[in-house]
């Protein structure tokens, strides 16, 4: 049987698309197609990734200009049909700017670019994106300047009540503490899902946690995504 194909949308400034391509092919056992941002057609709709890096210089706000590109218009249309979509880092910012996910990602609390390994607790394992990750706390790199998750108190409560918060920055043993919050995100939020549970956005980079040993946590993240296919 031929391998399935998932799409990775590429913008001017994306720089995690190749890492993602390698991780997805190797651990999801699929082929990939890179879709340039001005292509209004996304042929392969098994799953769509929006990678990290930058998009259009991140002018105006991170991810804002990318929301109007032809490929994103198609992503928005397909998202309503239930196509699974994952946005990582800049991809998460783009998905919030498209209003496919709640909230906004703004300047880190200390206004520094943060690049380090962080522990992340999986708050909701009852999603197709996370149910096969065998650990409760994973270690993923983060690399961003605008990663502080913000939303209104009402929306925050709704996200909590609907179990839409999927990842939170935590200690190694899964404690959600202010001291483990790298960027000032509300409630240590590192990743959320939409209400229909087909769109995931996260600031940490699982695609950068697949190289060094067989127990790198990115590997179980991508292997787990085979659920969808």
């Amino acid at each position: 049987m031929p391998k399935k194909v998932v799409s990775i949308v590429v913008f001017p400034g994306s720089n995690c698309d190749r890492d993602l391509d390698i991780a997805v092919q190797k651990y999801m056992n699929v082929n990939t197609e890179l879709v340039w941002h001005d292509d209004p057609n996304i042929k392969n709709q098994e799953m769509i990734f929006i990678p990290g890096g930058f998009s259009f210089g991140d002018y105006l706000r991170s991810g804002a200009l990318a929301t109007k590109s032809p490929a994103m218009k198609e992503v928005i249309r397909l998202s309503k049909k239930g196509v699974p979509i994952i946005g990582i880092c800049n991809g998460f910012q783009i998905l919030t700017e498209c209003k496919l996910l709640d909230g906004a990602l703004i300047d880190n609390y200390k206004r520094l670019f943060i690049c380090k390994e962080n522990f992340v607790k999986i708050e909701n394992k009852n999603t197709l994106f996370t149910k096969n990750i065998h650990k409760n706390v994973v270690q993923f790199p983060i690399a961003h300047a605008q990663g502080r998750f913000y939303t209104s108190e009402d929306n925050l409560k709704r996200l909590e009540d609907n179990n839409q918060i999927v990842f939170k920055y935590s200690s190694r043993d899964g404690k959600i503490k202010k001291s483990e919050n790298p960027n000032g995100s509300m409630n240590n939020i590192a990743g959320i899902i939409n209400k229909n549970k087909n769109i995931l956005g996260l600031m940490p980079h699982p695609e950068r946690a697949v190289n060094f040993s067989e127990d790198n946590d990115g590997i179980s993240f991508f292997i787990g995504l085979q659920n969808f296919l």
């Binding site: 105006l60 804002a64 109007k68 919030t96 700017e97 906004a104 703004i106 913000y150 939303t151 209104s152």
Partner: peptide, 8 residues
Amino acid sequence: DLLSNPII
């Protein structure tokens, strides 16, 4: 729709 983000 573009210049501002109404959430923030």
